[in-house]
Simulated scan of single mutants.
Amino acid sequence: MKRVIVYGLLPALALFAAAAAGVLKWQDTSVRETEVVGTEAMRAATEGTIALLSYRPETVVKDLESARGRLTGTFLNAYMQLTHDVVIPGAQQKQISAVATVPGAAPVSATPSHAVVLLFVNQTITVGQDPPTNTASSVRVTLDKVDGRWLISHFDPV
């Protein structure tokens, strides 16, 4: 009986313990990697959103053209058309300025190449000499990692 315990049961228990430790280590590493990816994507979504929604009439072309470097895919094309056809002319003609802030953000999902982030956005808009107006909204931002950078591929109000 002692032989069965010493040569059979104890090695089996040791093997099981080692396997369990390996699985736990793998899960811990996976969770930490997901947290890092989520944090990186959240930062990119926050900075990108502020860049997309902030401009001054005297620098609107430069402000919004620089924001396009944070975009990809069909959203980039839609953004370019909207800014050139509507936002830039309106900002210049009516002296519109906008300042966006992101007081809160949370990752919804994250993989090494794709992430979704929920942002709470405050925007202050001033038209000419009128008093500023404030709006609060929430946005679901989808990002794709392209050439090592997180770029916004969808921007959906919720």
Rank of each mutant, 00 (worst) to 15 (best):
K145P: 05
V158H: 09
L71P: 02
V23C: 09
T29I: 12
S137K: 08
G48F: 00
L15P: 08
L53A: 02
V102L: 03
V146Q: 02
V60L: 00
P107G: 12
V121Q: 01
V37S: 09
T101Y: 08
D28M: 10
G128I: 02
A91P: 05
A106D: 09
M1E: 14
G104N: 13
Q93L: 12
V108I: 14
V117A: 05
T111F: 09
Q129D: 13
T135H: 13
A12W: 11
T133E: 14
N77G: 10
G69N: 14
R68M: 12
T46C: 03
T126W: 09
D63I: 01
R68N: 08
T135L: 12
A41W: 05
V116P: 00
Q27I: 06
F120P: 02
E40I: 07
A14T: 09
I125Q: 14
V117P: 04
R70S: 04
A44I: 02
F16Q: 13
M80Q: 14
W150D: 02
R43A: 14
A21N: 03
V139W: 00
K145M: 04
T133I: 14
P57M: 04
K25A: 15
T83I: 03
D28F: 12
A19M: 11
P11L: 01
E65H: 10
D144G: 03
V102D: 02
A110W: 10
A14L: 04
A100D: 01
T135M: 12
V116Y: 02
T39M: 09
T83D: 00
P112N: 08
I96R: 05
T34R: 15
R43Y: 13
V146M: 01
V86S: 11
V37D: 11
A12L: 15
S109H: 09
G8W: 03
A100H: 04
L82R: 15
P11N: 01
S137L: 06
E33F: 13
G128L: 03
P57L: 07
K2F: 14
V139T: 08
E40D: 08
P131H: 04
R43T: 15
